[in-house]
Each structure stands twice: as structure tokens, then as C-alpha cells.
Simulated assay, not measured.
Amino acid sequence: MELRQLAYFVAVAEERNFTRAAEREHVAQPGVSAQIRRLERELGQELLDRSGRGVRLTEAGEAVLPYARAALAAVEGARFAVDELTGLMRGRVAVGTVTSHNVDVAALLAAFHEDHPAVDITLAEAHSDALVDGLRAGDLDLAIVSVGKTVPDGLDYEVVTDQPIVAAVAPDHELAPHDTISLDTLRGRPLISLPRGTGLRTRLDEACAAVGFAPRIAFEAGAPEVLAELAARGLGIALLPRSFALTRADRLCAVAIERPALRGRLVFAWRADGPARPAGRELVVRARAMARAAKSA
């Protein structure tokens, strides 16, 4: 019994016609007939009733059909498994990340490379909006992005950090003595922020719009370290993740923002239907495990 015999039998059973079955299998019609005859001789039963204008299954044919389909499906599954392994072992994976965070991306990629040395890995930095576009387009398999309460449509994610965004000011700033301020306190004051397209800036713009004002951005920079330095020199109020501001407590005061509170989430993100590349899917599994281990530590 050969696989092609089962494939031709299933094709004729489904098409109810030898000619159409041959066209579907891209072979000559006599070849289909000959192979099915051989299958029938091997099984000792006729599988097809050829007496009428069309082709019908005999009782034996009805009994054999589900097994023939199952055998072909099993072979297809084996081929898919091999293709997956080949794609993983010799594929590529593309990763994106925002510019500043505490995720040990190097450790993640190094461990992946050690297990799959033939996979090409690329890493690029960009704003969250650009990274989201890259994920949706399939250009990126995995990205570290900053998001708000909801994740952009079409993506799935694993939270890495979820923390307040604070107003970071120099020790001699008028807001420094305060533990908390309302968001409205920032109205009209010179602010220091990441540029548009970043997750933190999106959170700020959305929150300010909700309470009726546009933030006055006096200084804009692409790295939180630069924002912190500008604020420490008294040039305005920097909007920074709380943990980042606290690491510079000798030069900055971190003032909590309430009514409403600003929060930022950093997540591993990928397409909701999964990366197209096998290597990308494997990296997503590892990234999720890394994030969960960090949260449980």
C-alpha cells in the first residue's frame, strides 16, 4: 500500500470523478485508475462503484475512507513537524525594543543563540508606535514596548513591569516638598518628556487631554537619562517611571501624580496569531517564561 494510492482514492471519493481527481492530483487519469486498482487488489475489495455515470463508494470504500484520510493527515503532520524544526534551526528572528528599560535582553538572546546557533538574530531600537507597526506587519517577531491600560489591537503580550509615572524634579524645585500632586498641577508648567510615538508620551498626552489641557513640553529627548539630567539641572519637570527616578534620588525628587494617576506598563508583545517564523514562536515562549520568572522572584 502506497501513500499515492491513498491520495488518489481520497481524491476520487471526494470529487466523485476520475478526471477531476486526476486534475486535482496533477497526474494523468489512467495513472489514477491504475493505482486505485492496485489498492483494491491489495485489500481484496472494490472500493469504488464504477457502474453508474458517476463514481460512488462501495461499502468497503466507505469503511476505508476515514483511515485513508487519517493516514494522509499523519504524513502531513510529520512533514509539518520537520519543516518546523528546520525553520527553527536555520531560520531568523527579529526583535525590537524601546530605548531604555531594565529587561536583560542580552541574556534572553544569548541563551536562545546558544541553543539555536544557526538562527540569525536581529535587534533594533525604536519608539513603541513603530515597534507595534513592525509587529503587526510581521517584520518583528517580538518587541519590548510601553503600553497603557490596554494593548494595541492585534497583539498579545506578557507584562514585564507595571509602575507609576512620576514628576521628577530637582531638590530645590517648588514641587519637591510634595509627596503627591494632581495631574492638573502640571498645567502650564514646563515639562520634560520623551517624544511623540513613545509609550510614556502617549500616556501623558492622553491623561492631560482627559482633564482638559495640552501638556507644555519644554524639552524633549529620546533617552530617559537625558530627561533626568535636564530635570536635575532645574529646567523643568521630567515625566519618568518611578523606579528610574528613584535610582537618581541624590539629584531628583520623585513626586507621585494622582487624580488621575499615570501608569506605564512595559510588555513583551507579539502578534496575537503568533509570529510567522518558527524561531519567533520559540523566542516568544522563552520571553514569557523570563517575564513570569521575574514577577515571581
Rank of each mutant, 00 (worst) to 15 (best):
T247P: 00
I257K: 02
L262A: 11
A232W: 00
E206D: 13
A254V: 09
A231W: 12
T185R: 10
D172A: 12
I165H: 06
A249C: 01
L194E: 07
R189F: 04
I237M: 10
D250A: 15
P224C: 01
A167W: 03
L230V: 13
V166A: 08
A228H: 01
L204C: 03
P224D: 08
L246S: 11
L230K: 07
L194N: 06
H178N: 15
G188W: 09
D184Y: 10
L246D: 15
E206Q: 13
R248Q: 12
A176L: 08
A168P: 04
A261C: 04
L183I: 05
R216V: 13
R189P: 07
A168F: 01
E220L: 01
A228Y: 00
G234R: 14
P164A: 12
R216D: 13
R265S: 11
R242M: 07
G222Y: 12
A170W: 06
A176P: 06
A249N: 02
R265W: 03
R187Y: 10
G199P: 02
L200R: 09
L183G: 07
I257E: 00
A209Y: 06
L194G: 09
R187S: 14
V255P: 06
T180Y: 07
P177F: 03
L240H: 02
L204R: 04
E258N: 05
I181G: 05
R201M: 04
V267F: 01
A210K: 15
L183V: 07
E174M: 13
A228W: 00
L230W: 09
H173A: 04
G236P: 00
A210C: 10
L194Q: 12
A245F: 03
F219D: 01
F219Y: 14
G222I: 11
P215Y: 01
V267W: 00
R189K: 13
D179W: 09
L183Q: 11
L194F: 10
L266P: 00
R203E: 15
